[in-house]
Write a protein that binds this DNA or RNA. Sequence first.
DNA 1: TTCATATAGTACCATTTTAGTTCTATTTAA
DNA 2: TTAAATAGAACTAAAATGGTACTATATGAA
Lengths: 155, 155
Amino acid sequence: MLKMSKLTDYGTLVLAQLAKESKLSSAHKVARATHLGQPTVSKLLKTLAHAGLVISERGAQGGYTLARPAIEISAAEIIDALEGPVAITECSSIKGHCDLQSNCQVATAWQKINFGIRRALSEVSLVDLQTPVELLATPNLKAYLASPTNLKGQQ
Amino acid sequence: MLKMSKLTDYGTLVLAQLAKESKLSSAHKVARATHLGQPTVSKLLKTLAHAGLVISERGAQGGYTLARPAIEISAAEIIDALEGPVAITECSSIKGHCDLQSNCQVATAWQKINFGIRRALSEVSLVDLQTPVELLATPNLKAYLASPTNLKGQQ
DNA sequence: TTCATATAGTACCATTTTAGTTCTATTTAA
DNA sequence: TTAAATAGAACTAAAATGGTACTATATGAA
Ligand code: SF4
Ligand code: SF4
């Protein structure tokens, strides 16, 4: 599986929709365009606003807009905002703790693989997400495995 | 998060342990070496046997051994066996279905990203995963700070 | 002023997923 | 015959997830 949560996925949809608008767009409007539920879109936009990826304007005629140009928002940042830092294993996150680590043969390798994936995702922008052309060269995870550096908590 | 399940993670530990043994190893023995619970290890080995990654021998003096050399077992296969094919979004999996897909701007991009990750994981072998514990050094903060992929504001 | 529109923040809940255990049946070496 | 071991299924508690609901607050316009 290695799946991201549905809400994170939907968050990218919401952001991609905002990227298509030049001015403020309400949650209701975004919901209609994306075919998502309005309460769900609201919840996502609140979280994204809190993370600083979108800017909100309250009151009548209020709404949301991207805080930065779409080219400057990465997939990794979106995931960070909506479900926390990429961490394929517990010990790949700086907050994570695993009792087995002192005895674990595979921890370092997974941490490096995690870094490779994280880095690849940081090089994908919101523009790339909504423009499905050639993108994302295959991450060379072997190169990361060869590195002597322990990259736990690289976020 | 983008995390794999704990059981999949543990599965790599179990396989790494088997790779260190030349002959049959019982679930109990693997559990002792990995510090995992014996019933959990048994469950994992049953699944791995079903997937064809390990071979089992029943009866007294029975146990498990890798079905192939460790170099020929990939991380992607291990994930496939224990939690199904890598699928970061619902629509990235052949079996998956998402009602939004006909209207979704980001589906194609995520599918390609999924393919890139999957492919990268298929190039990592069980041998690559087996990193000596001694390499678990203090986090190298200098390397982190010097990294061109320095990511802002994460915990 | 008053009101409709809109976000902010929190709490809640049903469902699903996950991690782990338990139990019975079967196989095999000694 | 028996102890050691896997096979397979069912079960359960806990956690995560997806979605909803509710109150409070802000703002533009009639
Ligand atoms: S230490 Fe080993 S078992 Fe624990 S989270 Fe890391 S990789 Fe998984
Ligand atoms: S179609 Fe869009 S919303 Fe549905 S799973 Fe794929 S990326 Fe996610």
